[in-house]
Design a protein around this nucleic acid. Structure first.
Length: 585
RNA sequence: GGUGGCGUAGUUCAGUUGGUUAGAAUAUCGGCCUGUCACGCCGAGGGUCGCGAGUUCGAGUCUCGUCGUCACCGCCA
């Protein structure tokens, strides 16, 4: 027997029992005639002690130990003379009678403590050591709990958990595919799924009615703090439902997860049309933990011979509560911030609403105190507030002010971790014009159904067609998205043609789905949650890396196993592949 | 593809206007220590300043290139 107890479970009630513990040496504190060892496992830390009563050979053995040795320790539980309130086992210690080294350790490259001295780079290279730290382990425990909560809830709602294939077919729509050569089919490739989209729709046609899967998906695109090339979705689909049914079901799931894992009750989720989200928040994923909504003041401020405004398509303003005291330096800082290439604004106009009722602005030359008072009225600014104004073309400026709004939210501490404000963003446009390829792209995906009342617009003004598509947004993070699907092969064919597919291309890529629609397809709809994002949101983290056991770095590399890597020529030969690496200039 | 930050001891970082022998903390090793739990005290070892070129009497410091890493933009149906 390796152990009788874990390192996290002994309490005062266990005093005088003989126990065997096993774990990693966290730290040794040698006080001369007596020494302490913190023994660590997944469950906690227990203190081992040697003093003058301990067998000399054990004391001698202790001196051979180092950090991260794996040992087995036999001894008697006793009450501590000086207790440690900070740990669960802090009232007891083990008076050692025997130590056995199960495994030695080299000196770890960074300290394995909550407040490690290691940076991201070295921790990723030795991820298996990083995972020993309780801060990282806690995230993965949370992830496990959340996955369990998902399964419990969806099982209780009669969902069938079904696996779908990972080696599938490449499609040019959407993100780049990871492709896998087929040895048995010379010159041909599988693709890894960006999502099990078509398969879950086929399961609906198969009559499964309610399907879910916690599933790895793959996209060969550049990474971000919240984007990995392989990531996990909670993928769901239902039959004989409309949008309202789907949102109700998955609002229920989301609330269940909050309750089960964080013990938080979140209220009912508001529905916000996409157009409102863009107008008021400059984003399709608004953070509604705070107000500071964007006001369109275009008509109010035009016509005072201020060229910048007069020539602008759109002028928007936000009101930063209590910021009238911002210094010149702070305002310059904000201006610089919006001028960064990532935002790309030309400048920023401010109006300070002074406590005495006067106004001080950067455009005093063009606007009177009365004019500025009207601005304040439009933006809801009161004495002590700061109005920030940006102008330019409409869609870019809405986004830019939306970014500024988030930055002000950060500066004012309005984006509190631990507060969760979910909402459904609905009524997305069906299509999005792409300048580069000079054609429409599906905003969600090509299987999304248009709103019935907008179907006539598909012929006259496709850009105006709204979709039965929805996103779950929490705290400004896109957590999930889905849609009511097209289940009619004629409408699906029309959609493909709008997207610029020829009949032949549509047939070659999605013929199997179009054919399936001809054999009795039920109305169906679904949703997919970004599981990694959801876990990192729950854990209060800014990156999904820390909720993934073995993540990739910014360049899509796994620095621990050093992949991707070149393969042997023999492997390439077998696949009939030849590398032709282009010389770098 | 682009913009920006960072790269100095095992690790995390400091290093002034370009100027003598590159520092701190922590980790490691040795000594002392009977109640520690970030133990304490004393001492020691530990450096290709990412790499390459350039400017200069002189480069950790300035310039260019390159590699790595992080954040963001593009991209992510």
């Amino acid at each position: 027997m390796y152990r009788t107890h874990t390192c996290g479970e002994l309490r005062i009630d266990n005093v005088n029992t003989e126990v065997i513990l096993a774990g990693w040496v966290q730290r040794i504190r040698d006080l001369g005639a007596m020494s302490f060892v913190d023994l660590r496992d997944r469950y906690g830390i227990t203190q081992l002690v040697i003093d003058e009563e301990t067998d000399k050979s054990v004391a001698k053995q202790l001196h051979g130990l180092g950090r991260e040795f794996v040992i087995q320790a036999k001894g008697t539980v006793r009450e501590r003379q000086s207790k440690n309130k900070n740990i669960a086992t802090g009232e007891v210690e083990i008076a050692l009678s025997e130590i056995k080294v199960l495994s030695t350790s080299e000196i770890p490259p960074f300290t394995i403590q909550d407040d490690t001295d290691g940076g991201d780079d070295i921790r990723m290279k030795y991820r298996y050591l990083d995972l020993r730290r309780s801060t990282v382990r806690k995230n993965l425990v949370l992830r496990s709990k959340m996955a369990h909560a998902v399964r419990c809830y969806l099982n209780s709602q009669d969902f069938i958990e079904t696996e779908t294939p990972v080696l599938i077919k490449s499609t040019p729509e959407g993100a780049r595919d990871f492709i896998v050569p087929s040895r048995m089919n010379e010159g041909q490739f599988y693709a890894l799924p960006q999502s099990p989209q078509t398969f879950k729709q086929l399961l609906m046609i198969a009559g499964f009615d309610r399907y879910f899967q916690i599933v790895k998906c793959f996209r060969d695109e550049d990474l971000r703090a919240d984007r990995q090339p392989e990531f996990t979705q909670i993928d769901c689909e239902m039959s004989f439902v409309d949008q309202k049914d789907v949102l109700a079901m998955f609002e229920g799931l989301t609330k269940h997860m909050f309750k089960e894992t964080l013990n938080i009750e979140v209220g009912d989720f508001p529905w916000m049309p996409y157009s409102e989200a863009m107008e008021k928040y400059g984003s399709d994923k608004p953070d509604i933990r705070f107000e500071m909504c964007i006001n369109d003041i275009t008509e109010t401020v035009k016509g005072n011979n201020f060229v910048v405004f007069d020539s602008a398509e759109y002028i928007g303003a936000i009101c930063a509560t209590g910021c009238a005291g911002y210094t010149r330096k702070q305002l310059d800082g904000l201006t610089k911030w919006v001028q960064r290439p990532q935002i790309g604004a030309k400048g920023l106009v401010y109006v300070k609403c002074n406590e005495d009722g006067t106004f001080k602005s950067s455009v005093d030359k063009f606007y009177s105190q009365d004019d500025l008072k009207v601005w304040a009225g439009k933006t809801g600014a009161k004495a002590g507030d700061l109005i920030l104004v940006m102008s330019g073309d409409k869609s870019n400026m809405q986004k830019a002010i939306g970014e500024l709004r988030l930055e002000m939210g950060n500066q004012l501490g309005l984006r509190k971790k631990g507060t969760f404000k979910p909402l459904w963003v609905v009524d997305f446009p069906l299509l999005e014009w792409d300048e580069e390829s000079q054609r429409f792209h599906a905003m969600h995906h090509p299987f999304t159904s248009p709103k019935i009342e907008d179907i006539p617009l598909m012929d006259t003004d496709p850009g105006k067609v709204r979709a039965n598509a929805y996103d779950l947004v929490i705290n400004g993070v896109e957590i999930g998205g889905g849609s009511v699907r097209i289940f009619d092969s004629a409408l699906q064919a029309k959609m493909f043609s709008l997207l610029g597919f020829t009949k032949e291309e549509a047939e070659a890529q999605f013929g199997f789905l179009m054919k399936a629609f001809k054999y009795g397809a039920p109305p169906h709809a679904g949703i997919a949650f970004g599981f990694d994002r959801l876990v990192s949101l729950f854990a209060g983290l800014d990156t999904i890396r820390d909720v993934i056991a073995f993540p990739k770095n910014n360049s899509g590399r796994d620095v621990m196993i050093d992949s991707p890597s070149f393969v042997a020529d023999a492997q390439l030969d077998e696949l009939n592949l030849k590398l032709d690496l282009k010389e770098k200039k």
